[in-house]
């Protein structure tokens, strides 16, 4: 039995057909990226004449995109908005999760059920009242707080962190309390440092969601200077719908930094998606 459980010697020959299938699949997955790059380096509409001018090559398109559209500004906006959302979400969720997991207070179970119930509510239900609140009552259209605050409170992160905090032995709190630490110190110096992995995972998952968010930034921004990358790219597409060389250069500009971060930290990405996607199981 013991020998059977060991991994069998790997004979790659047996997997040749599998490699073949996976390679074909990889080509299919990579084709859009390849054409994005290829067209972005072609001179204006060179591909129109039913041929592929592989000998022509220019980087003018990239300069042209930056001349036409403030992509640098879109980047700055996306970074400010996504980082703020992630930090605020981690802060508010970990504080609330600490209360739900480690403290006793009246109404704890009812409040927690309420949090769980909001998980089921789709964003589209709250979007319209939020728009009225943020754009009309608060007059926050085209501001960072309008882009950041409505998505900075996550029931899902609270739920996930509460589950994790519950797994940390209660004796740790009790020992700290004996030494005179208050709840705030226990949260900051014991619970958070012990939860580094789950916090990092949540951070990556939420960053990705915030970075690619489309609907809310679309309705709450009008000014060009307040657009995030997806919205900027979509409006760029609206303006230059037939200028493929510029559209592709714009897409490459929007994607390259994200893809670099992904490839460098891809294990974290995958872990984040897995943990969040499995509902913390």
């Amino acid at each position: 039995m013991a020998t059977l459980a060991l991994p069998r010697p790997v004979a790659q020959r047996n997997y040749l057909w599998l490699h073949g299938l996976l390679l074909v699949g990889s080509i299919v997955m990579l084709t859009p990226f390849a054409f994005m790059l290829l067209v972005s380096f072609w001179p204006k509409n060179a591909f129109m004449a039913h041929r592929y001018p592989l000998d022509q090559f220019t980087i003018q398109n990239y300069f042209e995109v930056f001349r036409q559209t403030p992509f640098g500004r879109y980047y700055l906006n996306s970074i400010i908005v996504s980082v703020s959302i992630v930090l605020l979400q981690l802060l508010t969720s970990s504080l609330a999760a600490f209360a739900f997991a480690r403290l006793r207070f009246r109404g704890r179970e009812v409040l927690f059920l309420l949090y769980l119930a909001t998980l089921m509510i789709p964003f589209q239900v709250t979007m319209i009242p939020n728009y009225i609140l943020v754009a009309r009552f608060l007059q926050w259209r085209d501001t960072y707080q309008a882009l950041i605050l409505p998505t900075s409170f996550s029931a899902f992160s609270t739920f996930l962190l509460r589950q994790y905090f519950k797994g940390i032995p209660l004796e740790m709190d009790e020992a700290a309390r004996m030494d005179g630490a208050g709840s705030f110190r226990i949260w900051w110096q014991i619970i958070l440092p012990l939860s580094g992995a789950v916090l990092a995972t949540l951070a990556i998952f939420n960053f990705q969601a915030a970075w690619n968010d489309f609907l809310w930034p679309l309705v709450i921004t009008n000014k060009e200077s307040m657009r995030t990358i997806p919205i900027g790219l979509a409006s760029f597409q609206g303006q230059f719908s037939t200028e493929w060389h510029l559209l592709m250069a714009g897409s490459v500009i929007a994607l390259v930094p994200v893809l670099i971060i992904y490839i460098l930290g891809q294990n974290w990405f995958v872990r984040g998606i897995t943990l969040s996607g499995m509902g913390g199981r």
Partner: peptide, 25 residues
Amino acid sequence: DQHWEAYLFLLPSLAGFLLFVLIPV
């Protein structure tokens, strides 16, 4: 005293939820 302490911990999250989720619902 954990009662009011717990409410303090919940306050930022709860305020956000009230304003951007529960009242909008």
